[in-house]
Design a protein around this nucleic acid. Structure first.
Lengths: 254, 254
DNA sequence: AATATAATGATTGAAAATGATTGATTTTGG
DNA sequence: CCAAAATCAATCATTTTCAATCATTATATT
């Protein structure tokens, strides 16, 4: 990974999360302590963030809202960030100007906001943070109706599902918690699974965006079989064997 | 967690709750007594809170925070913050456990999130930042469907209006850009006016929350006559004359 | 391929933050 | 008022973080 690109990622993380610790950077970006420190020094030298003892904070106001287990959530959010952004970048390149896109809530799909290059596309989502980012960037962003879950800041419930029935997306991007041959794509929350399932049915073409930590895992509720979607993932180790998955669907490995 | 970040959290807790004990900090933030004490010392040294025996209390209406932010960030948003919070606090006190509430997008109404004391209420809104805050705080928060405007981060459009027709709110809180006797409550954006108008119709009882800079101003589109709502405002200068408004509706001056 | 240049990773002693301890001080409850 | 309990400030030992240095690896150039 290019150092400049890595520094951009760090800056995005800081501005997104409000702050980041050296340790988080080490574990999530798989870089050494020295590199993490150097990157913060460089970014600080460019006046792009505040360097504080233990890490760095964003220049803007503190938009972080405290949650008891925020630390663990943040780790989860940051984990595999490099792969997630690579995946999102590729996914965004598939978008055409005339598309009507559904983007599912999730940390990988959320990265899409930064890579969509067609300002004319119409985008619907159930993710509060994503719709916020998209709107700020000036896209035609639409939010589904319904109850907002605190854990994922996504919209779920019957209102969302009903609303989806009237939508006909040309393209859909979904996150998942697990991918197996037998159980397809699955997620631990039944309400989110229901929304995913419904949304996916409304898409002419759909993609699962997943870092390769999800392969071989299955969660409580299946929302799609592998036959119904294509998969976009990023290889971290060269030796992972995707061939069994390739037998049932298209797998794009970046 | 970074020390600076932790201190920000403590400050938020103090300002939100009015006070905090050392013991609460120890158990809630999982820090040692020494650290808790040190943090309070530091924050006290920065003049951000009052240190008292057993913990700390907030400085009146946390004036310093807003002043500090004022220099760096959007001045307009923070301009009447003290009044807005006063207004929001009073408005929140009107809420009953069994209410179904609509909260309009806006800087004053957004403050409501911090003052609602009934966790059972059901809240619907067209504001993205508000629904986010509410969900994180654990309320039953619902978002309207539709296009998200970048300037206000609020939902507008026909989908929102249609969805509103099925909702029957017991209580509604609205912001406005202008209040005059002849033109009622008005706002510069036609789409937002349409959503406000529709939402207001669905409320059994509704309140306009407005700092007193809006009185006497009128904007392009009226969304409500004064007769249909009550007004909650806060007096900054004692000499403003609300009597003409009191002739047509109830005005709560804080 | 050989060399130069840049980027990275590991090591180190210094500095900072943290947590535990102690004895003084304040509060609480009879 | 007194005594027990809680809180406090100060100190010290431990852990974590820091910046600087040096060795190694990757990248570019000739």
């Amino acid at each position: 990974m290019l150092s400049e690109e890595r520094q951009n990622v760090i800056l995005k993380i800081v501005n997104n999360a409000g702050s980041v610790s050296i340790q988080e950077l080490i574990t999530c970006l798989h870089i050494s302590e020295s590199t993490a420190r150097r990157d913060l020094l460089i970014l600080h030298g460019q006046g792009k963030l505040n360097k504080v003892h233990g890490g760095a904070t964003s220049l803007g106001i503190n938009h972080t809202i405290y949650k008891a287990d925020m630390e663990s959530l943040k780790e989860k959010y940051l984990m595999h960030m490099v792969e997630k952004r690579k995946i999102a970048k590729y996914a965004a390149s598939l978008i055409q100007s005339e598309d009507f896109i559904y983007i599912d809530a999730g940390s990988t799909t959320e990265q899409l906001a930064e890579f969509i290059s067609k300002p004319e596309v119409v985008i619907m989502t159930n993710s509060i943070p994503l719709v916020q980012k998209l709107a700020i960037k000036g896209y035609n962003a639409y939010i589904l109706p319904g109850k907002v879950k605190s854990s994922t800041e996504s919209v779920v419930g019957s209102q969302a599902q009903e609303h989806l029935q009237d939508c006909h997306f040309t393209l859909g991007f979904f996150g998942t918690n697990g991918i197996t041959l037998s159980e397809g794509c699955s997620t631990p929350d039944i309400e989110e699974a229901a929304v995913k399932q419904r949304a996916l049915k409304q898409c002419k073409q759909s993609f699962i965006l997943s870092d390769n930590s999800k392969f071989g895992l299955s969660s409580h509720f299946t929302f799609s079989s592998l036959k119904d979607t294509k998969i976009i993932t990023a290889a971290t180790t060269a030796d992972f064997d995707y061939s069994i998955y390739k037998k049932v669907t298209e797998v794009y490995i970046l």
